[in-house]
Design a protein around this nucleic acid. Structure first.
Lengths: 132, 132
DNA sequence: GTTCGTGCAAACGGTTTGCAACAAT
DNA sequence: ATTGTTGCAAACCGTTTGCACGAAC
């Protein structure tokens, strides 16, 4: 819990009860939730939390560099803790989004694209989850 | 124009004036337009065309395999002709989306991901367009 | 008492849907 | 006459915004 406080302060975010609740959920989230999913989940413990506050808070976190948004789902943004670079795998059955470690996949050739100066990239994969 | 007719028929789509107009624009589009952009552009020549028809038509095209949707833009789907596989480059200044030839970038390692069976993938790059 | 965050409700933009008019077979 | 397509408007969903209340310095 203390680390959450420090994380917010380190990013210049004034901590409030609502922001801590959102941060606690979203920074540990591995599920790439949408804003509404964050609201649903966090509201379970903080019933007075309003949707607007969740949206405001998430946008604030993005602005302050605590979260990144990803356009990986059709129709809604998903939020991802800004940790080390990684790729994404999308289960075509369930739509669930999984992180893929950066070293698991190698991309070559992006440096010498004619006409483009690539500063960021990621591989977006889709397929089925294996039983194992 | 004849090829458009055949393309629609080949995909089991009954051709109508509206569908041909949409197809003509979107199949040649290199700009990855959103549905509303398609509407705006096609309406210039077909002023009676309704937004609903554009949405219905685009969804029909996707259903029938003539178009693919890509979640590359925040807040709106973009449509892409289903041609050969390719990657995407997004200009971080303008948001413009460009196709990157499949052979220009190589991805390795996606076959042996533990737990995932990858059936599709693409590299999504962002950066600046070079002057050249 | 000023500043900032919250909550509500209304507004907004992209998309879908219900329905009545219509065209084609 | 049946089937399928169109156009309009209303509904819908995810998100933003305006504003009044309330908490904190």
């Amino acid at each position: 819990m203390k680390d959450l406080l420090q994380a917010l302060r380190a990013h210049g975010i004034q901590p409030t009860a609502q922001r801590l609740a959102v941060a606690r959920f979203v920074l540990e989230a591995t599920a790439h939730p949408t804003a509404d999913e964050v609201w649903e989940k966090v509201r379970a413990r903080n019933p007075t939390l309003s949707r607007a506050t969740v949206y405001n808070t998430l946008n604030l976190f993005v602005e302050k560099g605590l979260l990144c948004t990803q356009a990986l789902r059709e129709g809604a943004l998903v939020f991802d803790p800004c940790v080390r670079r990684h790729h994404h795998f999308i289960d075509e059955k369930t739509g669930a989004i999984h992180d893929v470690p950066w070293e698991a996949v190698k991309v070559t050739g992006e440096k010498l694209l004619r006409g483009y100066e690539v500063t960021e990239y990621q591989v977006v994969m889709t397929g089925r989850k294996r039983k194992s």
